[in-house]
Design a protein around this nucleic acid. Structure first.
Length: 957
RNA sequence: GCGGGAGUCGCCCAGCCUGGUCAAAGGCGUAGGGCUUAGGACCCUAUCUCUUAGGAGUUCGUGGGUUCAAAUCCCACCUCCCGCACCA
């Protein structure tokens, strides 16, 4: 049968919509509030995006069947800058982006025309993504939908950010950003040519040297090396500028003047001085030492300040430069006396490590490319293993990695050091063509995530939260540890203005942290019950924090107390968030901020209960990316392959945290699996179930244990495993069952199969909701499977005896097959001998009880056997005991327990009635069953005495 | 560098937390058989090595260790992947 997926899906989606099945209001059932990070609509969603939403949808559908009142809402995150950049590029007619829209995203031409306006881009992809979500069958309550730039949401964000400020969580400071001097805007990855993220090196510092009335500022990554400076290098050909900087007069290159003009400084040029005028004089170190200024052509005016300090003992470049310099000087020159000053001792290196490494690498002049490598190697070595020596005064003996920071602080306190952030990956070009610079923004607003008391609350929340999978929890703990101040406002982009400083917009990762609360209120805004102006601070305080009173909320909001209380009830009913789903790339930011902001704003009982983190999706083993052209838009995939097969392929390809490898073969594999299951379902009729035979009791028991396993797996979001059990493991059991009934020639099992497959389809329905409805209806149900109850495990339906007897039957068949395989004989007669020795049975049962806890030491087992008068005979048959240990050893703890709990049963009776039919089918001959002690026994080879409980002896002729 | 994660029988991927149920699930591939006019799909069987009695041997990145027992716990090493921020 070939399924028309889209036809089935449209039909059932129509029914869900018609019945408003996923519109959730408070009622008297227990609730679950499942949320996923909402999408940013600047492109259609592809298979990768589908993963998080699909997992959450399965989760929501599962809880719905478990009897919860489940709220699963969705919004759209318009906040941010990417669509701004896109609109600019589209306006400029950039081919690259237009081609992408046309050829990869297949956006119609008249829509593209509107894309010069950022919001139109977001609106277009918003609808696109939403349609995809509907087509995927996500059980979303769309009445609550919003974007983050609608007035109601903005009211909520204003309240949120004001509350954070009032609680002292927001501080102000300065911050370096990548900046386009032409656009007068901060730049991020989307704003640069080639999409490079401007990387700012914040560990670069400027150290001040005195030069008469002037200051020589010199940049370095290694402030500790000031103790080892022998000289400065200045380019004689460069014309330096004299500039007044915050009251000091600096001498720096023209390029440097430009850079510092973007820092928070008062900068004005007052004159010029050539390099050659400076050379030969001395500058003064912070400790008063005179440092000679020497000429060097290699000094680039564009690097740092255009001045270089020389630490020849520890910087290979400086060492080589000094050697080269001395060569050109007369022997009598005083410069010949300049010697490297060693300040760091590192194991494996001499006093002058720079010299060691230069010699080791065979570097002979300063144009050698290997100098770069030498510098890196030594830098790292000294950082990790080096110790400062006695030339470093109070820092003697410090390890470099700690000493550096101490020296930096010391210099800073004495006014000899400032930060000098640089672009690590310069040059970075803005899309407008200008080269980006580092700009230090004054008065930036920060969320003070570095605050220890705040971190403490967050840890507290994490401790009590359920984090799935568990092993990602350590990552959260780490993130909370290293998190520090984070800018929460920016100067451009869509979003909500800071209420107290309208020049700033609340940054997109800060306006998406507690918005789940807004889902509980948004439907009242959407249906016009309240309007955005009604949502005052006092209203939110009362509804969300239970602060103030309803009277105050009513008077400021101009809403009736009834409405306010209805909304408050709705919030109180649904909050806290029971499960938050997101991709693992959001652990470091969104998910951690989500926790931090909740603990900052809400009281403990409203803190999130669970976070579920999933890995990303790869396409045929490669990362999905626009440039690789391997993006599969979700809607196209649904159209071609059906929503359910896509859902299952995504879920089954990897465990939760693993990156899933998506490929079309797995989709078609799943399609045919579903097709055959659907076919099966239309064949089965519910009917009378007659008297149960051994295999019936077995398959029904197995079904029970499957239900238990699958339920647990879904609860822990091990969906791959659960799905696997539903689709495949069930099949293994069913095919054994088929074998048995065929061997017996039975045709009265339709009722049993119907019952089993009903449970199976019910459990499949959260995963593949559409086709499961179809299966469910084919099974003869008139209601919806999505509204049916999740199969319940009941222990009393498990027949332990039937499981162990069926195991015996299987293992006996296996043993026979095994013997036939090894001996390659054609069987003419098969004879089975079961154990009937009372002593052996007693010993067996005693051993079961000993070994069920995991004990399997021969000595211990034997000792216990002998100690019991009932089994003391064991000492006469150590061979037997040893073999039984092996038998039991290879059995699962579960089976052992079951055997122990079940009454012992008559193996002979069971095998006699069950073995022949299946044996005849498998091997083509009749199987005779004897017990060891039978009088009329046929045992020409004396095999019978080898029989053990659950391990009959076998004779094949 | 800091932090997180991974290395399993041709490939993908479970198992590791809670040691024995592990020669190690499942899928793919491959081989043989069935079905079919043929192909596809589907079904069955096999797929580390050896083995004429249900058995044995050697395997889970490398090297050690703990234990009666290690893919699983501990230590060291090697290799690979991801994140490091104002960006959604």
């Amino acid at each position: 049968m070939t399924i028309n997926w889209n036809e089935i899906e449209t039909r059932w989606r129509g029914k869900w919509q018609e019945n408003k099945d996923f519109e959730t209001n408070p009622n008297d059932k227990p609730k679950k509030f499942i949320t996923v990070a909402y999408p940013y609509p600047n492109s259609p969603q592809h298979i990768g995006h589908g993963r998080t939403y699909t997992l959450a949808d399965v989760h929501a559908r599962f809880y719905r069947m478990k009897g919860y009142n489940v709220l699963f809402p969705m919004g759209f995150h318009y906040t941010g800058t990417p669509v701004l950049g896109m609109a600019r590029r589209i306006k400029a007619g950039e081919k690259e982006i237009l081609d992408g829209l046309r050829n990869i995203y297949h956006v119609p031409e008249d829509a593209i025309k509107t894309f010069v306006e950022p919001i139109k881009i977001a609106d277009y992809f918003h609808e696109e993504i939403k349609s995809g979500m509907i087509e995927m069958g996500y059980s979303i309550d769309w009445r609550r939908e919003f974007t983050t730039i609608v007035p109601g949401y903005q009211k909520f964000i204003e309240w949120q950010i004001t509350t954070l400020k009032e609680k002292g969580r927001i501080i102000q400071g300065s911050h370096p950003v990548g900046w386009c001097p032409v656009d007068q805007n901060p730049v991020s990855q989307h704003d640069t040519m080639g999409d490079v993220e401007p990387k700012i090196d914040d560990k670069n510092f400027l150290i001040k040297f005195k030069f008469g009335e002037f200051v020589f500022p010199i940049t370095t990554l290694r402030p500790e090396t000031i103790f080892g400076i022998t000289n400065l290098w200045v380019n004689p050909k460069t014309v330096y500028k004299k500039v007044s900087v915050d009251g000091e007069t600096w001498i720096v290159s023209a390029e440097c003047v430009k850079k510092i003009s973007f820092f928070e400084k008062k900068v004005s040029e007052i004159g010029e001085i050539t390099g050659s005028e400076i050379i030969g004089k001395n500058a003064t170190n912070q400790d008063g030492r005179d440092i000679p200024i020497l000429p060097a052509d290699f000094v680039e005016p564009s690097m740092g300040t255009g001045l270089v300090m020389s630490v020849p003992a520890h910087a290979p470049k400086d060492y080589q430069a000094l050697v080269d310099f001395k060569k050109d000087q007369p022997q009598s020159s005083e410069y010949q006396l300049i010697k490297p000053i060693s300040i760091i001792s590192t194991e494996g290196y001499s006093e002058i490590p720079a010299k060691d490494i230069i010699e080791k690498m065979g570097i002979s002049d300063q144009s050698d490319d290997k100098l770069e490598e030498a510098t890196k190697e030594l830098y790292l070595k000294e950082f990790t293993d080096g110790k400062l020596n006695d030339r470093c005064g109070q820092f003697d003996g410090e390890k470099v990695q700690f000493g550096r920071d101490k020296i930096r602080v010391w210099l800073q306190e004495n006014g000899n050091l400032e930060k000098f952030p640089v672009l690590e990956n310069a040059p970075v070009k803005c899309r407008c063509g200008a080269e980006c610079v580092v700009k230090v923004l004054n008065n930036q607003w920060f969320l003070n995530y570095g605050d220890e008391e705040w971190k403490g609350l967050a840890r507290n929340c994490l401790d009590e939260m359920n984090i799935l999978p568990n092993n990602i929890e350590t990552e959260f703990i780490e993130v909370i540890d290293w998190l520090h101040e984070r800018a929460c406002a920016r100067q451009q982009g869509l979003g909500t203005k800071l209420p107290w400083d309208k020049d700033w917009i609340v940054e997109s990762l800060s306006d998406s942290v507690i918005y789940m609360a807004y889902y509980t209120l948004s439907r009242f805004v959407n249906d016009g019950t309240v309007s955005p102006e009604n949502l005052t601070k006092e209203f939110f305080d009362y509804v969300l924090l239970d602060k103030g009173d309803v009277g105050l909320a009513a008077s400021t909001s101009k809403l009736s107390e009834d409405i306010i209380n209805t909304m408050k009830k709705e919030f109180t009913y649904f909050y806290p968030v029971d499960s938050r789903h997101s991709g693992r790339d959001l652990v470091q930011n969104h998910l951690s901020f989500f926790v931090l902001n909740h603990v900052a704003i809400f009281e403990k009982k409203l803190w999130p209960q669970e976070i579920v983190v999933n890995g990303s999706v790869m396409m045929d083993g490669a990362k999905m990316s626009k440039s690789m052209g391997n993006i599969i838009p979700l809607r196209a995939a649904i159209k071609d392959h059906g929503a359910d097969p896509i859902r299952l392929a995504i879920i089954s390809s990897a465990e939760l945290l693993q990156d899933a490898d998506f490929n079309m073969e797995s989709v078609s594999g799943i399609q045919s699996k579903l097709e055959s299951l659907l076919e099966e379902c239309s064949r089965l009729k519910s009917g009378e179930i007659g008297e149960l035979q051994a295999e019936d009791r077995w398959i029904l028991s197995k079904t029970q244990s499957k239900v238990a396993e699958i339920t647990e797996a879904v609860e822990k979001m091990r969906l791959r495993e659960a799905l696997h059990d539903i689709l495949f493991t069930f099949e293994t059991d069913l095919s054994w069952y088929q074998k048995r009934i065929q061997a017996k020639g039975r045709d009265d099992v339709s009722g049993i199969l119907h019952q089993i497959n009903s449970a199976r389809v019910a459990m499949l329905s959260p995963f593949a909701p559409h086709v499961s409805e179809e299966m469910w209806s084919n099974l003869g149900n008139s209601d919806m499977v999505s509204k049916s109850a999740w199969p319940e495990y009941s222990a009393d339906k498990v027949d332990a005896a039937s499981i162990q007897s069926e195991e015996l039957l299987k293992s006996t068949i296996d043993d026979i097959a095994n013997i036939l395989k090894v001996t390659k004989i054609e069987p003419k007669k098969i004879v089975i001998y079961v154990n009937s020795d009372e002593t052996k049975s007693k010993i067996y049962r005693k051993m079961l009880s000993i070994m069920v806890g995991g004990q399997n030491n021969m000595g211990v087992v034997m000792k216990e056997l002998i100690a019991d008068p009932d089994t003391t005979d064991a000492k006469k048959m150590p061979d037997y005991v040893q073999k039984v240990i092996k038998d039991l050893h290879s059995e699962s703890e579960n089976i052992k327990k079951m055997k122990l709990e079940a009454e012992s049963f008559d193996e002979k009776e069971f095998l006699k009635s069950e073995l022949n039919s299946i044996g005849k089918k498998e091997f083509g001959v009749d199987i005779e069953v004897y017990s060891e002690s039978d009088d009329n026994i046929y045992d020409p080879k004396g095999k019978a005495r080898h029989a053990r409980p659950f391990k009959p002896a076998i004779l094949i002729e």
